[in-house]
């Protein structure tokens, strides 16, 4: 695809002589939700980190919006700022909730911070916690704050590494709603790693399946779950889908 947000070609990531991730080709279309699935240790997080410009592949090319990012030099700050990532355990700073949410705006030197923070907190339904200390938050609240923090500066790409695996059902709902909304309303591109097949079915426009670090199949949820091309996909879908 020419208008792909990400275009990954012949990516291999090695730590020492251990290969952790291999993607021969992957395109991520704009304004879509791509779900990356697979058993644990399958290299999904590594893939996400590469997309988030936190790691560089050992070999291979990544194009972001047509620009090559893997030509030896580090991706520019401007490029990095268009992409953000939310991790499985929310890494909140030791400051109040609202100062956490404001962080992304502050480092970009943007204006009108307080109003935007208030708005964002309302969106995630946690206005009452604005002044709270992050150590007092429940898991669900913390993750919602992490999401608020990531969305407040309206990134082009949102990467999520198992964002709801530790959350209560209500929080899961809030998070999924939010993700759907930003894609619809802002055209944000989302790449989401999850083990939850039901979540994948709910959210994904496309599913990428990785096994043992290698991307083996990409397609719509229907393609991958109902009519898998690869025998391993079939085995995964049958064997692991027991949530």
């Amino acid at each position: 695809m020419n208008d792909a947000v990400y275009s990954l070609d012949d990516i291999v990531m090695r730590y020492g002589d251990r290969e952790v991730c291999r993607v021969s080709h992957l395109d991520v279309p704009p304004g879509s939700i791509t779900v990356v699935m697979g058993p644990n240790g399958a290299g999904k997080s590594t893939l996400l980190r590469m997309m988030g410009f936190l790691d560089s592949p050992t070999v291979g090319d990544i194009h972001f919006r047509g620009e090559l990012c893997t030509n030896g030099s580090e991706p520019s700050l401007a490029m990095r700022r268009r992409v953000t990532m939310v991790f499985q355990s929310p890494a909140l700073f030791q400051r109040s909730v609202e100062k956490n949410v404001a962080y992304g705006l502050e480092v970009r030197g943007e204006e009108n911070v307080q109003a935007r923070v208030t708005e964002m907190l309302e969106t995630v339904g946690l206005s009452h916690l604005a002044k709270a200390k992050t150590s007092t938050l429940s898991g669900g609240e913390a993750q919602r704050i992490a999401l608020a923090r990531a969305l407040i500066f309206e990134p082009e790409v949102l990467l999520l590494d198992e964002p709801t695996s530790n959350l209560d059902p209500e929080s899961v709902s809030v998070v999924e709603d939010l993700i759907s909304r930003i894609v619809k309303e802002r055209g944000t591109t989302v790449v989401l790693v999850t083990q939850n097949v039901f979540q994948a079915r709910r959210l994904a426009d496309r599913v990428a399946l990785m096994i043992d670090g290698t991307l083996i199949e990409v397609g719509t949820p229907d393609d991958v779950f109902t009519h898998p091309q690869d025998a391993r996909t079939d085995a995964f879908v049958r064997g692991v889908m027991v949530y």
Binding site: G52, L54, L77, R80, R81, V83, T84, M85, F87, S89, A91, F93, Y103, G104, V107, R108, R149, A150, F153
Partner: peptide
Amino acid sequence: NLRRQARSLGA
């Protein structure tokens, strides 16, 4: 992780 997170938020 905070280092990674800060970078990811655009610092």
